[in-house]
Write a protein that binds this DNA or RNA. Sequence first.
DNA 1: CGTGTAATTGAATGCAGTCAAACGAAGTGG
DNA 2: CCACTTCGTTTGACTGCATTCAATTACACG
Lengths: 205, 205
Amino acid sequence: MYCDELDHVQAHKVSRNFKKNQSLFLEGASPRGVYCINEGMVKLFQRGDEGKEQIIRIAKAGEIVGFKSLFNEIPYQVTAETLEESNICFIGKEDFLDMMDANPILRKAVIKELSHELSDREDFITNMSQKSVRERLAFTFIILQKIYVKEPINLSREDLANFVGTATETLIRLLKDFKEEGIIEVHTRKISILNKEKLLFIAGK
Amino acid sequence: MYCDELDHVQAHKVSRNFKKNQSLFLEGASPRGVYCINEGMVKLFQRGDEGKEQIIRIAKAGEIVGFKSLFNEIPYQVTAETLEESNICFIGKEDFLDMMDANPILRKAVIKELSHELSDREDFITNMSQKSVRERLAFTFIILQKIYVKEPINLSREDLANFVGTATETLIRLLKDFKEEGIIEVHTRKISILNKEKLLFIAGK
DNA sequence: CGTGTAATTGAATGCAGTCAAACGAAGTGG
DNA sequence: CCACTTCGTTTGACTGCATTCAATTACACG
């Protein structure tokens, strides 16, 4: 689902600039509305028992964040935090729900989005439980390429590790392997994918 | 979401008996409708690369299965299979979608259910990536107790392992530990929980 | 230019997976 | 009714992947 499906409700929008590493909402807080990313990138993550982040999703410009919790009456289970400077607009809960009631197109988009995300998560679970870190990293690069499209992936080693679901040290060792195998190219934080086919092969299925 | 929210559409229902280990639908097939469990229990799982099952959810009497895929235009990504003799009714895709258009209550129930499942999956992911098998088994028992309520859990060792996301042998070793610690009681396939507090403690968070 | 944070490398440990074999239960057919 | 088969369960031994801890190096930012 994309922001532009909400374009006809400009009136309700409140746009705001966020610095890097600022949070939109915190795990445990009560949902007040949805966030639409005009510019920038946002990571959504959960914290495990010892505080380690598990990144669930990375949302980019055009995407909407935080609407799942509108339909639960429960607090956010994830934290949303910008990965870079961003411009994000906010739509209040009541406004959004009213819009959904009035607008069948939006409604269908929401349902479809929820379904897609649900499928993504289920794949994620199976990957997590059955694949090696190496395989998961390959899979993660495939996902990240869809997000970063043509520009190089730009994440800290820690964020990358927290997306793959591994330790930072393990991730770094694997980056080296991939680099030596000619699959990726690394310039400090920026990672470019050189051989997508090989990644798909490693990721399996 | 529960079947009885669909009770007013008895006309559309087609009820049918299923034997144990029969499938309602297969991964890769095209969704034709939703399944409402009157009696019995159903496991939903995905197969990994080497064919190993990852159980995503276990649905019991009263619950609805298979509606997520109605809103994707993509094939099922999971297989649904009965865990015991079951009576299940089927509601065709068109009927169900029409009902949703006409009935705001049903619509809200669907959205809420999707949201809840999404939250469940996200917790699942974080558990998978950050917890030990022992912790996950404890967590799995908490979930299973909510499904089996007062009767003992009744699953094959393999299904249990595939729900926890581990090897059957590892699961068996942990069952022995839990038994020796007085947390559970085991009679062949039937497992009863003796100490829920301890399970919660082990599961963490 | 110094200081803190991120990234990297090394070494050691251990959790959990795999393989192999033995055992048990449930059913099948002679 | 018993031998036989089959499948699920259990136990043992081994291996290795990945984590953790510790130490060092690189880098970004004030």
